[in-house]
Design a protein around this nucleic acid. Sequence first.
DNA 1: GGGTTGATTGACCCATTGGTCAACCTTGGG
DNA 2: CCCAAGGTTGACCAATGGGTCAATCAACCC
Lengths: 202, 202
Amino acid sequence: MARPSVEAERKAQILGAACAVLADVGFTALRISDVAKRVGTSTGTVHYYFPTKRDLTTAAFEWNFERSLERRQHILELHDDPRTELRAFVDSYLPGDEVTVQAWHVWAELWVEALHDDDLAALNERVYGAWRKIVCRIIEEGQAAGHFRAGDALNLANGLIGLIDGLSLQVLLGSKEMDVERMRVVCDEWLAALDVVEPIRS
Amino acid sequence: MARPSVEAERKAQILGAACAVLADVGFTALRISDVAKRVGTSTGTVHYYFPTKRDLTTAAFEWNFERSLERRQHILELHDDPRTELRAFVDSYLPGDEVTVQAWHVWAELWVEALHDDDLAALNERVYGAWRKIVCRIIEEGQAAGHFRAGDALNLANGLIGLIDGLSLQVLLGSKEMDVERMRVVCDEWLAALDVVEPIRS
DNA sequence: GGGTTGATTGACCCATTGGTCAACCTTGGG
DNA sequence: CCCAAGGTTGACCAATGGGTCAATCAACCC
């Protein structure tokens, strides 16, 4: 080892740039040279760490997921009561601030690419499964504590996640009839319907 | 006029082929030559009717919408009671048969392209608005008839549509945890929750 | 300070593909 | 039967952009 490796750091820079470009112009229009320019390096360097465009984008999709989960870790570590936890978790996914919007754009690109690529579909299944599992766990805890009404927790989780995905898409598309505030209301109504009609105690 | 125009017919053939290719390989990988080959003609002919690739894909997205609505016209013309009508309408959107799956694929491509193209975003707003309006109208009729519980009909419609979109995506992606049958169950639960708790009469 | 190796560069190659175009075909009218 | 005009063809052009590579640099060790 001649010097300390800069590999991890450089890779992170490149992946961050790749996500930004993906969100800006989409998978179709992503150019290796754009990513390089954004990092302030050359296309050669990008290819040095990610031999092909597919290697780069696949790694970027994975990186987007890891960062996305990382940003929400603090919510999960609070160990609030399930109602608060679920609400905070859902809230963190509303495409309001720029970071969240960018992450959503990258997710959308992943979905559509995954429709025609088995490897990406497998990646989606894995990372989407993680998100589904977290929501499912919170719902189960809420049911056990008597806060949430009964029902198949997996179905409930899938419903909530589906709702969020679908609404986010329209928000991202700039629909006049579906903006972040409307989305918040619809999600809140869904969450309210999850609460037991009669609180069990006090 | 030397002969009767074949324009409408040929355009429809080309647009049908374009939708098939879009669904098969996606917007990114759509080639004019693939569309031409599927129709059994030359790239020159495709360009004769649709000067640029963008003209072709935009028209294909619109065509997909029109066909999609057309296929459901019979449901709307039955004038069933709102509960039955809404259920039939939702059911017709489950990505089960091949035709519906292809249409969903094209929708997904539209969404992601529209994220980076204002014209396509406007197209989406228009056609998505039509779909939203239909669902909203059915819900309002159901509320007026006392079948559905009270609540902002537009929000309810947006919630249902968002749910369907989000779930469909995961079904299309071949998720093991979300197939058509599970999707049907989740949608049915949503619809059941829309019914009034105590039927108003008999 | 020389050697080793990781890291970087950007010019270049070449496959791909959207779009053009001039020639040609086909149908129907006069 | 010939002409006009819509319709069709596919070779070709030009641009684009992924990936290669030989040269170079920079950090660290001996």
